[in-house]
Nucleic acid binder design. Structure first.
Lengths: 147, 147
DNA sequence: TTTCATGTAACTTTATTTATTACGTTATTG
DNA sequence: CAATAACGTAATAAATAAAGTTACATGAAA
């Protein structure tokens, strides 16, 4: 399975946008994320539907953050992306006739549900501001190391 | 990506095998799992490498469980299958140059690592015997409901 | 020696994400 | 008001990974 990397992508994009005073174009974002501007538009479009960013066409248009960094959580972003499937492992059949398979599904589903709940709680506890701070910290450390 | 359903599959297979005194053939297992005997051999072969089952060729051959049901955990099975990727969500680039992206990765990786640890702990706490009991319970309930 | 079963390599199909192409729409600027 | 810069989006292709299939070899039992 190819893994869905859109959450990672939009976080990267949003942090870059947060460091700019002007809107950033899909082309700029695509360049820094090493992808295609159309992909950027598609993905950012979902964030726009959730009210997290806005876009403007024409000269000096582009994408802009429409929310306070401290108020946007990773979970909100995950939801804005349509809550994509979290696990690459799953049941063979979703609604099997076989009672044995039903039991297997029940036990696995419970385990996956717990792990997903933990992940989403974790996502809910991290804001864009936290990520920005993480970056600032990382940046300082690199500078120190370089002298 | 297509989701990996082998853990679900082998659990289903093992529980059916556990209810038989004789070895079950790949064809029989394939039939009850609605798949192909070659797929069964491939998957069960991994369990054999882990010492959990044995296979015999020729007349009255097939697959047999080689372990106590109470001593085999879901985690062992997951490991026997090669510890496949758990998440369908992941980082865009694994080792990015961009410091922003490194920060994003670090935070996401930590969240995923926690959730994976929880899942694997959960897997480690469930044995085949537990699953078998779950099935027995479910079977009883169905019978009661039917009168 | 025939039959039944696994072992395995090679290839195809299927599902899903990501990338690309093409063209339309809107806003700014000269 | 024309040229340009930007997004919007549909349609299609490429890339990736799991699962399925075919084909044939190997080994054991009747």
């Amino acid at each position: 399975m190819k893994r869905d990397s859109r959450l990672s992508s939009v976080l990267h994009a949003l942090l870059h946008m947060a460091e700019q005073d002007r809107p950033m174009t899909s082309d700029e974002l695509a360049a820094c994320m090493k992808t295609n501007p159309v992909v950027v538009r598609r993905t950012m479009g979902l964030l726009r539907e959730a009210g997290l960013v806005s876009s403007e066409r024409g000269h000096s248009g582009g994408w802009r953050i429409e929310a306070d960094l401290a108020s946007v959580t990773l979970r909100q972003l995950h939801e804005a992306l349509g809550e994509p499937t979290v696990f690459a492992i799953g049941n063979r059949h979703e609604t099997p006739d076989c009672l044995v398979e039903q039991s297997v599904n029940a036990v696995l589903d419970e385990a996956f549900a717990e792990a997903e709940a933990l992940l989403l709680d974790r996502f809910a506890s991290v804001t864009l501001a936290d990520l920005s701070a993480e970056f600032t910290q990382r940046f300082k450390e690199i500078k120190l190391r370089k002298g």
